[in-house]
Design a protein around this nucleic acid. Structure first.
Length: 718
DNA sequence: GTTTAAGATCTTTTT
DNA sequence: GATCTTAAAC
């Protein structure tokens, strides 16, 4: 093992093996390196059995990255024995093994966000509730509730709303249980249940996982925190690494207090700090420190670097998103030539996945090889979802959501409604009705043709279901795909299914290489597909030397010589929905900090004057983050100077005003407000140097409100 | 009863 | 724009 590229404090951290350890590590300080080296050190120098090591990450991407880095240091046999992955994938595997304790079948389906929303939609149709929340919002609240170990953490809800929501919640968990399904949050929550209720099971895992390591600890939520606390109780060997400045997952319940209170959760905690940045140039380190200092809530750190000054951060304003993409493409080609770099040295980061479309389009045109690192929900197109619906039902006949998706393909909405009504009345699952169609036929007004279709479906599903124990996942997926192609030649093409077929083939082969043939079952594959498999999965060489396109969220933990940060516009980055809340703006700023600190040599920031987004062309103002950058570290492109100077000036004035008037910052044209006396209204305009707001009230019409006096009477709610 | 077309709604980030 | 829902034509 090579130790030369470690500094003394890094070495010390790596060599401290026992007891609870918290490492506060700034961006670029070698955080991931410390974790991976430490694991290698434990196995090779300390002789610790890799079987006893549990290493957890947050995103699939960092799990893969960590695995890859460790694979360069230890042999594959040892690597295989380490339990390494995301929280969700690791504990889902454990739940699969132990599901009988909790009354679940191990073939349980994992419901993604959309599935959950559909369940909630149906509940709302079933019970008539006077509630103003959309299914989406309800799902979010339920998720928050579960991640907080079933306690409400939201002061905004009134009593009536809580009553309604708890009713919905009851139905929701009932429906999921009947479908033998877990949602993402259940994976953590049920693990907690398992460990609390069954000490013998907990003990087994406590003894197995003698050494626990967690990356990006600032992103953990309470549910995860409790699992770890429970597992680490006996041996107390828990090693966490985090950086509060990079906490960007609060929308998923992540709570910085897990870091702040780490010393309360464990006794005799050793705390280390890594503050030297090895990654980026002086300009980038300085500029990003400067940015993060605008946040009020933070642990003060001194991130410093010995690196060369490097180039200044470049800022470019494009006319449209198309021109933005063209500028990026031509910059890549010229920088690549001048600096003798490769395509893989470039990354393009964006706030929202949708921004990738135009970049892809231009890159294809200019023949720049690229790869999109995306979450699967994004690639999950209709055809694949259809195929998955069959696979999920075949694997788990109780899965109501997926079965309904199949039915919807085969019959009209009216028929579906009748079936659902009957299912509700008789308290029988739709699968039961369709399976015993003869007994219910007189109640359903369906044609013989539809009836025959249904029969055919049931026959197919049951036949394939009977094979899940004897055939491997690849064979079954291939069979179902062929079946769909045969049955609906108009709807599907073989290319539609190629991504998933590649995945399942790769997965099945990998499993077959393992001892005892691994887990080649269909449900094993589905679990992997929903929790682990990422992008075009296989590590083949075709994937190398390409420009990387990804969201800022996914870029965390990675580094690239040249980084483009795109769409730096108010309403996009920071995102529209964050503008009204200080804490959300701070999270966007941390996100920008993450983006900027990915760059080793050069960062190029782009924004557009006009962007076609969500069906309309909008005029944009440069992001406040551009204005927050210290002028010493940036270079505004000449073209941008001529083209967008007014815009920059204007937004600069805007920015300074906002800075001077903290209260003012919350109010925006278009904000919906609630005035204690006048009721609901919407802000139309500001007058008299922003002292007066013109507000249109629902019942009273337009009114001019002196903001200074009204501050405590107005609540902004969107 | 089924298919198609117009209409409405929501547009962040990930497991 | 994309997706899902509802209304009208087949």
């Amino acid at each position: 093992m090579v130790w030369i590229d470690l500094n003394n404090s890094q070495k010390k951290i790596i060599e401290t093996i026992n007891g609870p350890i918290l490492v506060i590590a700034g961006a670029g300080s070698g955080k991931t390196r410390v974790i991976t080296y430490r694991i290698a050190y434990m196995i090779q120098k300390m002789g610790i059995n890799p079987y006893n090591i549990l290493a957890l990450t947050f995103t699939r991407k960092s799990a893969r990255e960590m695995k890859f880095r460790i694979s360069n240091m230890i042999n594959s046999k040892n690597l295989e024995k380490i339990t390494l992955g995301t929280f969700h994938s690791i504990f889902s595997s454990i739940l699969r093994k132990e599901s009988h304790w909790l009354g679940y079948n191990q073939n349980y389906t994992i419901y993604d966000q959309k599935d959950s929303e559909n369940v909630i939609k149906k509940i709302l149709e079933d019970i008539n509730l006077d509630i103003s929340f959309s299914p989406k919002e309800i799902r979010r609240i339920i998720s928050e509730y579960k991640n907080n170990l079933c306690s409400i953490n939201n002061g905004k809800l009134n009593r009536k709303e809580i009553e309604c929501l708890s009713k919905i919640y009851k139905f929701y968990i009932q429906k999921c249980h009947q479908s033998n399904a877990l949602d993402f949050d259940d994976i953590l929550l049920k693990t907690n249940h398992l460990f609390y209720k069954f000490p013998n099971v907990l003990n087994k895992y406590r003894n197995k996982f003698k050494y626990i390591l967690i990356d990006e600890y600032q992103d953990t939520n309470l549910s995860q925190n409790k699992i770890i606390k429970n597992l680490a109780f006996k041996h107390q060997n828990v090693f966490v690494v985090g950086d509060d400045a990079q906490s960007i997952y609060s929308f998923r319940g992540a709570n910085i207090s897990n870091i702040l209170n780490f010393h309360l959760d464990y006794k005799n905690v050793k705390i280390f700090r890594l503050e030297q940045n090895y990654r980026s140039t002086y300009h980038i380190v300085k500029a990003s420190n400067n940015i993060i200092s605008f946040n009020k809530n933070q642990i003060i750190k001194k991130i410093w670097t010995d690196n060369e000054k490097g180039e200044k951060i470049e800022i470019y304003c494009a006319f449209s998103e198309k021109e933005e993409a063209q500028y990026i493409a031509s910059s890549i080609l010229s920088i690549k030539k001048n600096k003798k770099l490769h395509y893989e040295n470039f990354a393009i980061l964006y706030r929202a996945n949708i921004q990738s479309h135009i970049i892809e389009y231009i890159f294809k045109e200019k023949k720049i090889p690229y790869k999109i690192h995306g979450s699967i929900s994004f690639e999950k197109r209709k055809e694949i979802r259809d195929l998955l619906a069959y696979l999920r039902v075949i694997s788990n006949l109780d899965d109501e959501e997926s079965f309904l998706r199949i039915l919807k393909k085969e019959s009209s909405q009216k028929t579906i409604r009748i079936i659902l009504d009957l299912s509700k009345k008789r308290k029988i699952k739709t699968y039961g009705i369709i399976k015993n169609l003869e007994s219910y036929y007189h109640l359903l007004m369906i044609k013989k043709k539809t009836k025959d279709k249904f029969k055919q479906i049931i026959y197919t599903i049951e036949k394939l279901h009977s094979e899940i124990k004897i055939k491997d996942s690849f064979t079954i997926v291939k069979n179902v795909a062929n079946l769909l192609l045969e049955k609906y030649p108009k709807n599907y093409k073989i290319e539609d299914f190629k991504p998933i077929l590649d995945n399942v083939l790769y997965h099945t082969n990998e499993q077959k290489k393992l001892k005892n043939n691994g887990d080649v079952s269909l449900s094993g594959f589905l679990q992997k597909y929903y929790l682990e498999i990422n992008e075009n999965s296989n590590n083949d060489d075709n994937e190398k030397n390409k420009v990387s396109l990804m969201t800022v969220h996914l870029s965390k933990g990675l580094e690239f010589p040249i980084v483009f940060i795109t769409g730096l516009e108010e309403n996009l980055f920071p995102s529209k929905s964050s503008l009204n809340k200080q804490s959300k703006i701070e999270e966007e700023r941390r996100l920008f900090y993450v983006a900027l600190t990915r760059a080793k040599k050069k960062a190029i920031l782009t924004y557009t004057k006009y962007r076609f987004l969500w069906g309309e062309k909008r005029k944009n103002y440069p992001s406040r983050f551009i204005n927050e950058l210290n002028e010493n570290y940036i270079k505004i492109h000449n073209h941008t100077k001529n083209f967008s100077q007014n815009l920059l000036e204007k937004s600069k004035i805007n920015f300074l005003e906002k800075k001077n008037n903290n209260e003012q910052r919350k109010f925006q044209v278009g904000s919906k407000i609630f005035h204690k006396k006048f009721g609901i209204g919407i802000i139309l305009d500001f007058q008299n140097e922003n002292k007066i707001a013109l507000i249109k009230f629902q019942n009273l019409g337009k009114k001019r409100i002196l903001l200074e006096l009204a501050l405590d009477k107005i609540i902004i709610y969107s």
